[in-house]
Amino acid sequence: MISDSPILRVRDYTKHFELYEQGKRIPSAQSVDLDVFVGRLTALTGATGAGKSTVLKGIYRTYLPTAGRLLYRDRHGREIDLACADEHRVLALRRTEIGFVTQFLRCLPRQATENVVAQPLIQRGVDWHDALDKARELLTAMDLPERLWGISPATFSGGEKQRVNLARGLIAKPRLLLLDEPTASLDPATAERVIELLTTLKREGVGMLAVFHQPYLVERLAEHLVELPSPSWNERPLEEIA
């Protein structure tokens, strides 16, 4: 299902961090505008420190925006400003509609990999066996050796962890998928698998906003490009701003 109206409209998003201990205000993202569409991928580019991760985390509400609107259209067609939506509403959206895959895997120390991956489906009320089947299917697609499925990913290599992380992020097929360098430590063959998977998901209607390290990923996957300007590095003391 492809449609032309965006599922996410970011308007004039600005984020500064106020660090009281250091008496500093750190500008991080300045007046960002972007759209994400059903079944398409918007790539966010820009120099290191330009604020790419800050935009993604703002949409996920890990960061509280300083200004701007983050307008998400949910599956019922209602528009929600993620900048100020109720916390329980945001939690519900994270469970059902908005996924985030970063470079880092966070999980419980003793959980088996296949359970870590199945988690988002179980959270949504999918039957445990079906969720595990789906998890194994994805782990196979990611080329993760079967002998690793039953143990915790805590001791996995960077690339292995990242595959687990991706499998978990993709399993529940969110409507909006945020990706922050999800392929940073993958070998070319595995990266190719990931590209295939993301392409399939796009075809199924998932809208994506992604930060990719390698330009060829942007070329192959993105329909839209948004470049953030280089950071200004003008940290100023808090007092000067007040």
Binding site: L19, E21, T62, Y63, L64, E87
Partner: peptide
């Protein structure tokens, strides 16, 4: 108060910032 990841990664209050740091 806030979402846990927000409290830990973008604490708004000076005290929370110190606690997290």
């Amino acid at each position: 108060t806030g979402l846990t990841d927000q409290i830990l990664e973008d604490p708004q209050h000076a005290y929370t910032q110190r606690l997290v740091a």
